[in-house]
Write a protein that binds this DNA or RNA. Structure first.
Lengths: 223, 223
DNA sequence: TCTCTATGTTAACATTGTCAACATGATTTG
DNA sequence: CAAATCATGTTGACAATGTTAACATAGAGA
């Protein structure tokens, strides 16, 4: 597949290779399988070469996590952008694709929301995401869609605003609504992949009930 | 507080001491702070003594996790059992106490749902919790309340059944409803303590919106 | 008392992340 | 072009940690 141009340098592009093989290792063999020596072996290099590209293992893992989030975003994106199907269908499918991604790649999903970043995030927490306030306080939704970054959470917010503009959803703070939706999806995914639910054999059914409950709390009026 | 009877044996009761000091260490200093040597030092014993009581570090951590779940259960229990206040108030307070427990003890909460048990749970997942099916297929709710174990999830299920009996909640599968509620609470807790939300400075407000959305999807009819 | 089992200690080992010292390919400079 | 400089890779060593084996000791029961 990816025959790198091995002509260029010592190894080629070690930095990217490290990130991607680490990502694949996490996905297939779990987080504990990742050791710097094993990583180096698989790439035919030596353990310490890593330190020419990353400050340490943790710095590498952060990059891996970022790449993992890209995969997650890529898995859900089609359902955000498919403008042909009705909004609620997209909304429904987006949720399914999210939970499905988690259950099909449990190791990867656990990494994304796992303990690697948690300490650091706790510190940075306050200053984070000031850009969201722009969305929150922007009055027109059309304008927001343009300025929103391609982050999945932002896309979710814009979909909610869209649904509010179409008088489908109640006019609640869209960011808080998005938070509730994300919480439900994230919690459900985590509980399933960690085996805390007794009904994890039928993920689809569990999701449908969750979706139904959530939706009835979101829609504007009942028929 | 807990002056153990140091007269009895070599150390006294090392097994329980290990579990409880480990639990406190996780809570105050994080999971990474736990090393067998440090644990042994704090208890004035030697590192290898641990292996007379546990198969290894992982076995010890599993016991720590069980003790941690007891703390979580104890933190929410008052809101389950306070029979004087109306059911919806108990329901509301229970959710707040859950999220509050998580945000006030982030290290502990992360441990409970963290990576220690995840692999094992994946294997045991299918055979787990057959007792829940009894609740699901029991027709009378009063009978269920008696037979339910003191697990928090079971209590949640019984409260839902109670609300259904009082015609407050819709008659949906109570286990699936409980799953949805737990997912929301768990997801919200995790996202907050890991700093994924931009609004984590006002936990209460976030919870209220989540609760409102969830409740409107649960209640039987709108006024 | 003697023996046995439970519990605790010490020393050693393998794994892993990290760093220092050295080596080499590529790039820039005189 | 030659030399210097920088980027990249390698080797050896070290500290921390979980684990195990061999040894030690206290308490219980014959």
């Amino acid at each position: 597949m990816k025959k790198k141009k091995h002509t260029s340098y010592h190894h080629g592009n070690l930095k990217e290779s490290l990130i991607h093989t680490a990502l694949d290792m996490v996905d297939k063999e779990g987080l504990e399988a990742i050791t710097l020596r094993e990583l180096a072996n698989r790439l035919g290099t030596s353990r310490s070469a890593i330190y020419r590209h990353f400050e340490g293992k943790e710095a590498l893992m952060k990059q891996v996590i970022l790449a993992g989030f890209d995969r997650l975003d890529a898995a859900i994106e089609p359902y955000f952008n498919n403008k042909e199907s009705p909004l609620l269908e997209r909304f429904h499918a987006m949720g399914i694709s999210y939970v499905t991604f988690a259950t099909e790649n449990p190791n990867l999903y656990r990494l994304l929301f796992g303990p690697v970043m948690s300490k650091e995030r706790e510190e940075v927490c306050e200053t984070e995401r000031p850009d969201l306030h722009k969305i929150l306080h922007g009055d027109s939704s059309a304008e927001v869609i343009e300025t929103a970054p391609d982050d999945s959470f932002h896309k979710l917010v814009t979909i909610i605003i869209e649904a509010q503009d179409q008088e489908i959803f109640k006019k609640e703070d869209p960011i808080l609504i998005a938070t509730a939706i994300w919480s439900l999806l994230h919690g459900l995914s985590m509980l399933i992949i960690d085996g805390h639910l007794s009904i994890s054999d039928n993920v689809q059914a569990v999701y449908e009930v969750n979706y139904k409950i959530l939706l009835e709390g979101l829609v504007r009026s009942h028929s």
